[in-house]
Each structure stands twice: as structure tokens, then as C-alpha cells.
Design a protein around this nucleic acid. Sequence first.
DNA 1: AGCTAAGAGTTAACCGAGTCAAGTTTTTGT
DNA 2: ACAAAAACTTGACTCGGTTAACTCTTAGCT
Lengths: 216, 216
Amino acid sequence: MTDEGLRERKKRRTRQAISDAAMDLFLARGFRQVSVADIAAAAEVSKPTLFKYFATKEDLLLDRIADHREETARVVRDRPAGVDPLDALHRHFRDRLADRDPVTGLNDAPETIALRDILYGTPSLAAHLMRYAGASEAALAEALAETGADPLTCRLAAAQITVVLLALAEDNWRRVAGGGRADDLHAEAAAAADHAFALLAGGLSVHFGQPAASAR
Amino acid sequence: MTDEGLRERKKRRTRQAISDAAMDLFLARGFRQVSVADIAAAAEVSKPTLFKYFATKEDLLLDRIADHREETARVVRDRPAGVDPLDALHRHFRDRLADRDPVTGLNDAPETIALRDILYGTPSLAAHLMRYAGASEAALAEALAETGADPLTCRLAAAQITVVLLALAEDNWRRVAGGGRADDLHAEAAAAADHAFALLAGGLSVHFGQPAASAR
DNA sequence: AGCTAAGAGTTAACCGAGTCAAGTTTTTGT
DNA sequence: ACAAAAACTTGACTCGGTTAACTCTTAGCT
């Protein structure tokens, strides 16, 4: 089954070793306090090699999280027949909440908390995270376009959905960082998610405008 | 009227000289191709002084654009009585479009185009721009909160509005970058803005879900 | 006017991220 | 067994950003 040569196996192992070393050091000492030279040394690899596997220092950390880039697009694409995209995303996010998936922010494992503190506490990491979010948004827009809706609508919808999901996660992180236990916060987080998706579906006019309002 | 001492005046002039030198060089040679040492030399200033005025190389460029950080919040706060926030923002954006304000992306002055090409073509600049957008979003959320709506709704609404505004601007930039004249594209851009605000106000359910749909 | 304290500016040296070129070792296919 | 390909290393380099020590100018007081 493993038609993977020795070379590939070693590459995978090297990459993993670098990633592991980076994670250990970041969790132990924080992002700024660790230099890429430290990481390279810990992984027993030279600096140029490290940068062959990871383009930037930030990617060393974000790599673990990056797998979720295509997630929303996949959810929309794989939704059961008869279920509309928004509902599918809503259900999926509720499921992720129930699973205490770290992407939702609702996870109080010490390691997850530490990682998230580093993430939101380091501007350059947050900025890079936005780049990943951009990729996720583009993929989602494409998936939505397959429903036949016009491209502009899809792009705007993808942007709104992506930013709302990020806002929900940050909100949950804030609550967990405030000392709450994930289990205690689950109901609240689920309610917030329901509210957010209702807002996405129903629009802002109920709160900040007239339903049929049109400027000018 | 000028209760501004000689010291303040000199500081303002120094800052301006640095900013001007930076803009000239960036427009002439691009972002990556210019080093901060070049800019410092052109402004006849030492490198540490340059960094006293601008925290990062990116800020050297973004400073000109940064004034818009409080704009949406101000529009909401200063809206005429009886006009709801969403309408006020919609009207304001249409006015900015009519004025060919660079923030809308609908501006084909060569210098503006060159600047925008640099902006969107340089990932680190785009990332920094997101930081500015974050500030704008926070300010807008605060302004919306003054309407009495609950904080979560305000934060989500601010995030959605901000991201949609950015998407519209990028859309317009793309059209202008494609070679179109701003005057020819104005009607199209206005229609897109109307569509976007209708989407914000009315929600996504018309396109991607049932109006009364609720997951589970 | 003359003195002093604040603070803007300079020089010079430094750190860390990221890149490059040249050469060495290891895997692979024949 | 051998040659081509590809990973890795070393060492040196560029550039963004910071620090410390020192100089010069402005502000404010008497």
C-alpha cells in the first residue's frame, strides 16, 4: 500500500520533526522568544532546509491549523440533497461545537489555550491567519457558485460567512480565555452560533434598518 | 491660530518628508525593491529616526490610507435622525463612488492605480491592511452598539459590513485594473453596491437558504 | 539674555528572518 | 556498480527593526 519511497518518507519525517520542534518551543517560550535558528537546531536541520519546508516562521505554527482551509467549501459541496448551504454550514458548526473542535474556539485543553493565546497575541500570526482565511473564503465562494447563484452574490456571501465564523471562534476563545470551562460554555456558544446564522440568513435590517429599505 | 511650536512644526515636516520620499520610491520601483535605508537616505534622515515615525515599512505606505479607519463609525454616528445605520452607510458609499474616492476602488488616476497594484500585489501590505480593517471594524461595532442593539449582533454586523465594503472595493479595483475607465464603470459599481447592501439588509436566505430555515 | 531639561537626531553596532551559491551526501533507476 | 537527481549543509549575505551612547536644538524659567 505504501508506494512511498524512502526519500518521501524521510522528507515527511523531516518536515514533522521541524514542525514538532517548533510547536514545542513555541508552547514553552512563546513566538517572539524563539528564533528559527533555535528551531532548526532543535530539529537537527540547517536553517535553509527549514525554510524549504516552511516559507515563513509564522507558517511553522499555522501549518497545524491550515488543514481547515477547504473545510467550509467541502461542507457546502458535500451537503445532503435538499439541504441548503447555509443550513449545512450551520449544522456543521454546531457539530464542531459539540465536538469541542479547536477551530470553534470552544476547547479548554491547556495546550489548545496556550496555542490560541500565542495566535491572537501575536499580530504577525493573526495577519497570516487572515491569509489562510482568504483562501478559505475563495474556496467557499467557488463552492457556492456551483449552486448557480451569481458570482458577486457568492463572493459577498462567502466573505460574510467566513468573517462570521471567525468572529464566533474569537468570541468563544475569549470566553474560554476568561477562565470558563468549555462544557459550561457550550450552550451559550451554540446560542451565539444560532443567532449568528439567523443574522446571516435573515439580514441586518431587523436590527439596523427597515426590511424593505433602499437608500435614496 | 497656529499654537504649534517650532518643534512640532519640524516634526510634522520630517514626517511628511519621510512619507513623501517613501511614496515616490515605492511608486517608482515597487515595494520590495525599495529598502527602508533608501527611504531614510532620500528623506535625509537616519534609520532609527524613520522608525520613530513609522513602526514598520508597511506603515510607510499605509499611512496615507489609514485615515479611513474611523470613517464607517463616523458615518453611523453622524447619520441624520430617522435614517438607520445601514442606509446611512449605503448612501455614504454611493456618494464615495460618485466622488471616485480611492477607497471605493473606483478611481483610475494613474497614481492611484499604481498604488493599488502595489497594495494588492504585496502580501505583507495586504496583511497590514487587514489590521487597519480590524480597527475600523471595532470602531463600527462600537458605533452600532450606541443604537442599543446587543453587543454580539453589533460585532457580527460590523464584521459583515466591513468585509463587504472591502470586497466591493477590491471588485472595483479589479475592474479598473482590467483597463476600464472609472466613468464607464460607475453604473456597474453602483449596482453592485446596491446589491451588496440589499444582501446585507435582507440576508443570504433568499439565495442560499429558506427564509424561515433553522438548523436542526 | 542665559541656563537647564527635554527630546529629536545621529552613529555604530547588533539581532533575527529570509536568501543564495557552492559543494557534499544520499537515494534512485539503470 | 554507477550516474543523475534531489536533499542537505556551510557560510556568507541582505534587509527590517532595535538599542545604547552621544550631540544638538528647542522650550521654559529666572
